[in-house]
């Protein structure tokens, strides 16, 4: 891991009965698979319909990290759950558009918007 990349840590908390939040801190790279999937397993309580990813504290993302997000998306979709992202900087929004992840992951401006989007489904 280079000096520009910090380790990934995640905080998971329920937002309500059907929605969980994963707070992302640090870098998402090829080495992040374990942390990301552990966080998803913790967020995936019985009855969870939406997982909200808070990227406000995302410091580094490479293409292997984007691949992990695709894998996470597939796992969530298999459980009929929606993935929603907020806190993306302009740069990371661009990457979500470039890689066309924004086709499948809802992108909103705040946690309140994420909750509203989750409740719409």
């Amino acid at each position: 891991m280079s000096q520009s990349q910090s380790a990934l840590t995640m905080d998971v908390r329920p937002l309500n009965d059907q929605t969980s939040v994963i707070e992302v801190h640090g870098s998402i790279t090829a080495t992040s698979e374990g942390a990301l999937m552990d966080a998803y397993n913790e967020a995936n309580r019985g009855g969870t319909r939406a997982i909200v990813l808070n990227f406000s504290d995302l410091e580094y993302l490479n293409s292997s990290g984007i691949g992990l997000l695709v894998t996470l998306l597939v796992r969530a979709n298999r459980q009929k759950q929606r993935l929603i992202a907020w806190g993306l900087s302009e740069h990371y929004r661009h990457i979500f558009e470039l890689t066309r992840l924004d086709d499948a992951i809802g992108i909103v401006d705040s946690e309140a918007d994420a909750l509203a989007l989750a409740d719409m489904d």
């Binding site: 520009s4 990349q5 990227f55 406000s56 504290d57 995302l58 410091e59 580094y60 993302l61 490479n62 907020w86 806190g87 900087s89 302009e90 740069h91 990371y92 401006d109 705040s110």
Partner: peptide, 13 residues
């Protein structure tokens, strides 16, 4: 936090 994040230039840019 979101404002700060938007203003920062990430090292992967």
């Amino acid at each position: 936090a979101q404002h700060d994040n938007a203003a920062r230039t990430p090292s992967d840019a």
